[in-house]
Design a protein around this nucleic acid. Structure first.
Lengths: 230, 230, 230, 230
DNA sequence: TATGAATGAGCGTTCATTCAT
DNA sequence: CATGAATGAACGCTCATTCAT
């Protein structure tokens, strides 16, 4: 896996001045406003949920005004859908950049786990938005015309790792890539998503790097135990 | 493991017990009103989140009026905290009722897994409320005076299972009960919590009993693989 | 007909101070606010139509705030319906006070005509509100629970006049009271309702008392011609 | 009475005629756009009144965009004025086409009545627009540069009928054509304008052809009674 | 000529909350 | 103990209109 500093959300801060150069180009002014609203909305929806986020907070964070949101996104819901779409695109893009130690299946799985955990920890807004969408029973994403595109590349990555491991006699046959994917995702997602209530009840800070590292190792153990030949 | 005298609602103080005497009487509306508000609020907060839930919706669902919420719970936040407390009490109560095949550690673990999955599936509002609380960074539950009480009984259940398994030479030493607990919880929590988006992207209904059963078996495999001696 | 200074709308100006005496009585404070909103709404809806009237204009005119309208009337439409109902009640009340020269049918008809014209001229808001309601295809008044009560007393007044005139051999038989009522109403309603466009196109001020008097005489002629035996 | 060269749309200026040449050409969109906006606006203003009509509704109905309205009519008010002008032009044009049984004054009057009722019933938007304009106290039409042109041809038609009737000894002298015109117009206008509230309160459908026919006959009776020598 | 972008002001409505009795 | 009345602030959204090219 190559870290190659991919951070799909680290777009919003310093490039502003560069953008104003771009905005001499036709369409750029509008695109800038649109993109800035989208980024602000991502943050605000992630922080406050759909109903807790107000158009005022978003437009203020985007240094724009409420009405521009309607101009570009028709409604609050339209904006939220656009945010979700953008979020998936970025997630999939990130997944597509995973580079693996191709000849060592166990290490490759470990790298996938590390990628997932790192991505969730670096993009807690991804988690928050997904939770919000599930609170709403997934009713927004089904309105997206592009939902079909969002099938995770990671599942295929895992599938090929498993195949290689099986060829090498390391992994059991009859292990479904989807199960392994869900195992990796659920353990890491939950760890980030529920960090506040978990920390409160367990009385320890699960976000401390030591704890994170422990959890990653345990998840790696669990995953590898699940795939290894007995 | 068995139920001791348990009243999931006798949380707040001593006047409560007096009230519960009254509430046997058909005309004792006050206690009933409070409880009905609490139940309605659980449903509404779970369905709409904290900001999406309105006092109007809640009081209507409770067949009461907004003003009564203030009478019993001081504020919307006070009500939400009471809902959270009640939710934890009920969850812990349920965990305390787990009955295990005490002499077969592997089967016991499997029963814990089954209990957790069943509980989450039967109480999706538990999941929704926890997600809402995490969205708010756990800021409500820390205001609860009773949070300390909520350490999960299940961790101890698992601890004793592991100990027994180690004594029997079935399980590895150096396995932490908390890790196993989190593994069980995260896999099942995620499966229920993200059921809408998962179903949308995977293109299949993960709530179909066949799929649920598959996932339970896989989780059992993963858990047991993680604890077994190699 | 007795003029006896009946003016159902002349309620709002000077009695205010008297009301504040009444408002020591429970319910009065609320009733005052409600009534004042109703009066203000009558004026504003009449002046601007349904959509042209804004809740701000109304609440300001009532020296109250927008939200009180929702407290008492649920919605803008609810307020409009209440205004319509009040308007009909007042109209019917006024009609019920018509006193006629009972033994002179021709004069009685003439008095009805005079009453109608006077009422419309003194209550142009009656006309404006009816026009607004017809613009909306009568969709508000059908929501009124009291619509049935609003059958005009004037039709019965005319019916008895016609009967008397027929008994006296002055009027033709086979004249329907409803037709005469509509003849009287339409001629006077139109004259007031369309006063602005009529005056513009005819190039004369139809509201000048001389013109009004002319029209009343002509209408009287037309009505009497229509009922007299040939 | 017959149609002279008449172009109800050639109202504004001389460029128009040039345009109308263009508009024979299938690609000449501009003229068509203007006309389509005008027709859409007529419908929308008639249905919703001035404030209830929005530029959005109009431009959508005209399959154009808001901006085009400003291009052709400067403002919402400008558009409304244009609609009113067009409406009057069409009404006058229709009146100018009335053909009468010139030698039978009574029948001629009856034909005028029939024309008026038919026109109102076939053009309820004429009524709605006039009511809207009167709600606004005629303030738009006075801004029209062409208002002067709109004196109704029908008055003159009636004037000549009355003269003929008097010559024939059928009609009284001292009957003003304007009064008869207003009698005809008011009775029919009111009948259409207030059809919704009337039907609601009288509990019968005044637009049923039987009821319409009855009213036309009664109006005819009233008009003829008013002009006949005793 | 024609159009995408932008805008200030205001819309009807609802929010959680408190007053006053 | 309970409730009608009231409230300031904000909500998502739409209005007619203008800018800039």
């Amino acid at each position: 896996m190559k870290s190659k500093a991919f951070n799909p959300l680290a777009v919003n801060s310093k490039e502003k001045r560069l953008k104003s150069v771009d905005s001499a180009h036709p369409l750029s002014a509008s695109r800038d406003t649109r993109e800035e609203i989208l980024q602000a909305a991502t943050r605000v929806f992630a922080k406050h949920g759909f109903e807790g986020a107000t158009l005022q907070k978003i437009s203020k964070a985007a240094k724009s005004v409420d009405r521009m949101i309607y101009y570009y996104f028709k409604s609050k819901e339209g904006l939220f859908i656009a945010v979700l779409e953008r979020m998936y695109v970025q997630m999939n893009h990130a997944e597509s950049l995973i580079e693996l130690s191709s000849d060592k299946p166990e290490q490759a799985l470990s790298e996938v786990i590390e990628f997932v955990m790192r991505y969730y920890r670096e993009h807690p807004e991804f988690i928050a938005l997904l939770n919000t969408e599930n609170l709403h029973q997934g009713r927004h994403i089904v309105k997206s015309l592009h939902a079909a595109k969002y099938s995770s590349p990671a599942v295929n990555v895992i599938k090929s790792i498993l195949k290689r491991g099986q060829q090498m006699g390391l992994f059991r046959s009859h292990v479904r890539a989807l199960d392994i994917y869900l195992l990796i995702v659920s353990t890491n997602y939950f760890y980030v998503s529920n960090r506040f209530t978990l920390s409160a009840f367990l009385g320890r800070d699960l976000q401390a790097s030591k704890e994170v590292s422990r959890w990653r190792k345990f998840v790696t153990l669990a995953v590898l135990s699940s795939v290894r030949v007995e």
